[in-house]
Design a protein around this nucleic acid. Structure first.
Ligand SMILES: [Mg+2]
Length: 634
DNA sequence: ATCCTCCCCTAC
DNA sequence: TAAGGTAGGGGAGGAT
C-alpha cells in the first residue's frame, strides 16, 4: 500500500485528498508549559557528534570533514512556531513533494510546508484495510510472505500460469480490486526474484505497477541507488559512498573480494549479488521465532533502586506473558539499559523521552529453558545490580529472552470415552502420546496478522499523565505500558502478538494467565466459502464436541477401512476452518498433523486427497484470519 | 577453527 | 508538549 497510514486516514477525511497530509500524535502546536533545564542544542549536537564518529570509523574521514544531515536539523527552539518534535509517521505524496519525509519532526516539516495538515492515527482502519488486502491476495494464491501489515511478497508463478493472464493485466485487475475494496491505492512490482520485485514496487509507487522483465534488469539495476537496496541503510550506504559508489552500476566494478574486505564476508557477497539484480533468497512462507522481548524507553525516571527493581519485575511479567502466548521457553536472558550519557542534559529535549544515552546489554544463561516470571525477575535484577548504575540516570529498560524452545505439552490421557453413535470403536486406535508430542513440538502462532494490536492501549491516554512510570499505579501501568505505542507505531505483522487466548494453556497446568481483557477481534470472512455447503446437520455439531472427541472421530474414520466420503471430508474441513476462525490454532495444529500423519500412513491416493482438500481449506482460512499458513510438520 | 557475547546495523 | 518497539543478521574479538 502507498503511504498506508495516510491513505487509510483519508478515507474519513476525503476533503484532504490532494493536499499535503501527515499522520502524527499531535498537531505540532507550541507547548503550553515550559520545562526547566531543557537544552535542545546540546542534546542534538551529541546525537550528531555520535553519528559523525560512527561515520568516521566506517569511512576513515576525520570528524571535522564530516557533515551530518540529521532530522534534528532545522528544528526551531522550544516555544517557536517550528519547534515541534512530534514525529511524522506517514505523509502523503503531496507532502513529500515539499521535501517532507516519514520520520521527520513536525517543526521542520512546517517550515517546508506551512499548510501541512495532520490527521490522527486510525488503528481500527489499518486493521480493516490490512485484512481486506490479505484476503484479496489470498483468493489468488497462498504463496504469501508477509512483510508487514501493508506489504507482502507473493509467488505468482503458478497463478499466472493457471489464469493464463499477462502480468500487467493481472496487476491492473488486482490493484483495482484492492482499491475498490479498501478505498486505498496500492502498487505492485513484478520481477524474477525478491530483490527485483521489491525494486520494481519502489519504482511503481505511488498507485502504479511495474514489471521488471529480464531484458530490462541490467539497465534498470545500473541506475538504482545503493541506499535503495534492502539491507543497505545509512551506515552502509555512506561507507560505500566514501569508496566512491552511490549506484549499483558503479558498485558492479568492484570485485567480490574487495567488497568482502570492506563489509565482511556475508554482507560483501550479498551486495555483490544485489547490485547485479541477483537474489538467491527464496520466499519464506513460515519462520520460527528466535527471541521474545519487551522494552520501555520513555517515561523512565527512578529515584531509588527499589523503584527500578519493581519496574523490572513488572517488565518481566510482561515478557513472561508474551512467552506464554508464543508458547516458548528460553535459556538466555538479556537486560538492556539506556543510561543518560554524562554530557547529556538531565532534562530531555523530548518530554519524558530517553534523550542522549549510552546503551548496554548484559546477558545471562540458564541451565534450563524457562518462562518463569520469578526466575526472569531474579536474573534481570541481578544483572542490573552488577552494572552499578545510579537509578536516577536510567532512561530505558528492556528484557529479551533468546535461545528459545517450544513448550512441550503433557499428554492428557483422561476422559477418552465413546463418541458419536455412527462411529465404531476400532481396536488399535488407542491414544498415543506421539500425537501430543506433535502438538507440543511447535505451534506457529507468530506469523499472524494482527495490525496494531491493543488499540485500546495505543490510542492516547485518557488522562494527561505527566508522571513517570514509577509514579503511576503499578498494576495497570505495567500491564499495558510495554504495549502502548509511542512515537511512530510499527507496522509489525510478523512479530506482533496474538490476542486469542491460548487454548493450550489449560494443558500447561496451573499457570493460567490472568490477562486483562483484550479488544474484541473481528473475525474476517473466510475465503472460498462459495464451495457448496454440506447439508449434513452434523457439520455444526462437531463444534460442540471437545476437540479430543473430534480426534477420536477422525481416528475412527481413518481406521474404518472404507473409502472416505466427500461429505465427511467437507465436514472435517469445515470444522477445522471454523476452529481457525475461532483462533483455536492449537487444536487445528494437532488435528492437522494427526490427519496428515494418519492419511499418509494409509498411503492411498484417496486419503491423501482428503488431507489435501482439508489442508487447502484450513490454509485458506489461516491466510484470511492470520495472513499466514499453518505450520505443518514434515 | 568455532563458539559466544556484545554491539552495530537494518527493516518495518 | 509528546513519549519507539520488536525482531533478525552479522561482525569484532575474546573464550573455548
Ligand atoms: Mg535500504
Amino acid at each position: 500500500m502507498d503511504c498506508f497510514f495516510v491513505s487509510v486516514g483519508l478515507r474519513k477525511r476525503p476533503e484532504l485528498r490532494g493536499k499535503p497530509v501527515a499522520v502524527t500524535h499531535s498537531k505540532g502546536s507550541k507547548p503550553q508549559t515550559k520545562r526547566e533545564g531543557v537544552d535542545r542544542n546540546t542534546e542534538f549536537n551529541l546525537y550528531k557528534q555520535k553519528q559523525a564518529k560512527k561515520l568516521g570509523k566506517g569511512t576513515g574521514k576525520t570528524e571535522d570533514e564530516i557533515v551530518i544531515e540529521s532530522r534534528v536539523d532545522n528544528v526551531g527552539d522550544e516555544n517557536s512556531e517550528y519547534g515541534s518534535l512530534s514525529e511524522i509517521a506517514s505523509c502523503s505524496y503531496e507532502a513529500r513533494a515539499k521535501g517532507i519525509k516519514n520520520g521527520m519532526f513536525m517543526g521542520p516539516a512546517l517550515k517546508l510546508c506551512p499548510n501541512l495538515q495532520t490527521i490522527p492515527y486510525d488503528f481500527e482502519g489499518y486493521k480493516e484495510v490490512a485484512y481486506t488486502l490479505y484476503n484479496t491476495i489470498a483468493q489468488y494464491t497462498l504463496d504469501i510472505e508477509a512483510v508487514s501489515c501493508d506489504e507482502m511478497y507473493v509467488d505468482c508463478t503458478e497463478l499466472l500460469k493457471d489464469l493464463k493472464v499477462s502480468v500487467q493485466d493481472f496487476a491492473t485487475a488486482l490493484r483495482q480490486e484492492i482499491k475498490d475494496k479498501t478505498g486505498c491505492p496500492c502498487s505492485t512490482g513484478f520481477g524474477s526474484n525478491r530483490l527485483q520485485s521489491r525494486l520494481a514496487t519502489k519504482r511503481a509507487k505511488p498507485d502504479g505497477q511495474f514489471f521488471l522483465t529480464s531484458d530490462l534488469v541490467e539497465d534498470f539495476m545500473f541506475g538504482i541507488s545503493l541506499k535503495d537496496l534492502p539491507g543497505v541503510g545509512r551506515q552502509t550506504s555512506q561507507k560505500l559512498e566514501s569508496l566512491g559508489h552511490q549506484t549499483c552500476g558503479s558498485l558492479q566494478t568492484l570485485t567480490l573480494g574487495l567488497l568482502q574486505r570492506h563489509l565482511g564476508n556475508k554482507t560483501g557477497a550479498q551486495l555483490f549479488d544485489q547490485c547485479r539484480g541477483r537474489d538467491p533468497n527464496p520466499l519464506t512462507f513460515h519462520t520460527i521465532r528466535k527471541s521474545v522481548s519487551a522494552e520501555v524507553n520513555y517515561g523512565i525516571r527512578f529515584e531509588t533502586n527499589d523503584q527500578c527493581f519493581h519496574f523490572l519485575k513488572q517488565l518481566s511479567a510482561e515478557v513472561h506473558s508474551r512467552m506464554q502466548q508464543f508458547k516458548v521457553l528460553g535459556k538466555c536472558i538479556t537486560l538492556k539499559l539506556m543510561v543518560r550519557a554524562e554530557e547529556a542534559p538531565v532534562e530531555t529535549a523530548k518530554f519524558m523521552g530517553h534523550g542522549f544515552c549510552n546503551v548496554l546489554n548484559k546477558s545471562s544463561n540458564l541451565t534450563n529453558a524457562t518462562n518463569d516470571v520469578e526466575i526472569i525477575t531474579k536474573e534481570v535484577i541481578s544483572l542490573c545490580k552488577k552494572q552499578k548504575i545510579d537509578p536516577k540516570e536510567l532512561r530505558g529498560i528492556g528484557i529479551q529472552i533468546s535461545k528459545l524452545e517450544q513448550v512441550m505439552t503433557k499428554p492428557n490421557n483422561s476422559g477418552i470415552s465413546k463418541f458419536l453413535n455412527k462411529n465404531k470403536n476400532v481396536p488399535g486406535s488407542n491414544y498415543t502420546p506421539k500425537v501430543e508430542n506433535d502438538a507440543g513440538t511447535s505451534c506457529d502462532v507468530k506469523n499472524q496478522i494482527k495490525v496494531e494490536d491493543n488499540t485500546k492501549y495505543s490510542i492516547t491516554p485518557k488522562k494527561k499523565n505527566t508522571s513517570s512510570h514509577v509514579n503511576k499505579s503499578p498494576k495497570h501501568e505495567l500491564k499495558s505500558s510495554p504495549v502502548k505505542r509511542r512515537g511512530r507505531p510499527p507496522k509489525s505483522l510478523k512479530y506482533s502478538l496474538m490476542n486469542a487466548k491460548s487454548s493450550m494453556d489449560k494443558f500447561l497446568g496451573g499457570e493460567i494467565q490472568v490477562k486483562e481483557e483484550l479488544p474484541a477481534q473481528t473475525v474476517p470472512e473466510i475465503i472460498r466459502e462459495e464451495r457448496p455447503k454440506s447439508s449434513d446437520s452434523n457439520q455444526d455439531g462437531l463444534l460442540s464436541l471437545s476437540w479430543e472427541k473430534v480426534r477420536e472421530l477422525l481416528r475412527a474414520w481413518l481406521d474404518s477401512g472404507q473409502s472416505p466420503k466427500l461429505c465427511d471430508t467437507r465436514m472435517i474441513a469445515s470444522y477445522l476452518s471454523k476452529l481457525v476462525a475461532k483462533k483455536d490454532i492449537d487444536k487445528v495444529y494437532i488435528l492437522m498433523n494427526f490427519l496428515k500423519r494418519r492419511t499418509h500412513e494409509i498411503d492411498m491416493d484417496i486419503w491423501i486427497e482428503v488431507y489435501n482438500y482439508v489442508l487447502e481449506d484450513v490454509q485458506n482460512s489461516m491466510i484470511a484470519v492470520y495472513g499466514n499458513k499453518l505450520w505443518i510438520n514434515n
